[in-house]
Amino acid sequence: MAYTKRFDGRKADQMREVEAKVGVVPRADGSAMFKFGDTIAIAAVYGPRHLHPQFLQDPQQGIIRCSYDMISFSVTERKRPGPARRSQEISDVTARSLEPVLLLSQFPNTVIDVFINIVQADAGTRCAGINAASLALAHAGIPMTDLVGAISVGSLGGSVVVDLTKEEEDYEEDGEKAATDIPMAFTLRDKKISLLQLDGKVKPEDLKKAIEAGRKASEAIYEIQKEALRGLK
């Protein structure tokens, strides 16, 4: 049985309801909220600021430090708070997906801290986190050449669908038809890939299809991000 009709009735290339808001954390230098349906991420940016410990300082450019975490009540089963293997990995890939657009050479010896908290999770949390972080960095007045937009695309039941929910992520079918989640991030103006992760099995042609679907979805994310920033004055 192929996966032709989605659980929540969306079209294959249709995202969940997306919402973005800038300036949600008053004490931060920049902050933003990003929502994919029931997934809500809040990002706060501090800096550029003095970097401690000193041996981490880079005299040629500033560094970006990301911290991703899910709040304990964000999932059905209580998540044990604090850093874990999974959140450390996601923090790292988030920093790497944002780095290409930042003009860090303007701030040598400093750090830009990005804190991402997932207050409600329903799959696609790292993508929501990257989107929120991109908005928060722009809001904090950090020089950057572009915004970054992330979207998770999945291959399941032999078809490629955009923005998976938790239910779809757990979809199981024999062999290659089981759900494969492919989170990806794009620089939004020139549509270059800045993050591409893949756990599971996917056919090469399906991966190409997934990237194209992600690129298309990122256009909608760009519009939402621009609108959120422009609404602020």
Binding site: A138, D146, T187, R189, L229, K233
Partner: peptide
Amino acid sequence: RIVVPGEV
């Protein structure tokens, strides 16, 4: 006009 990073 308000511009965002990366905007032409």
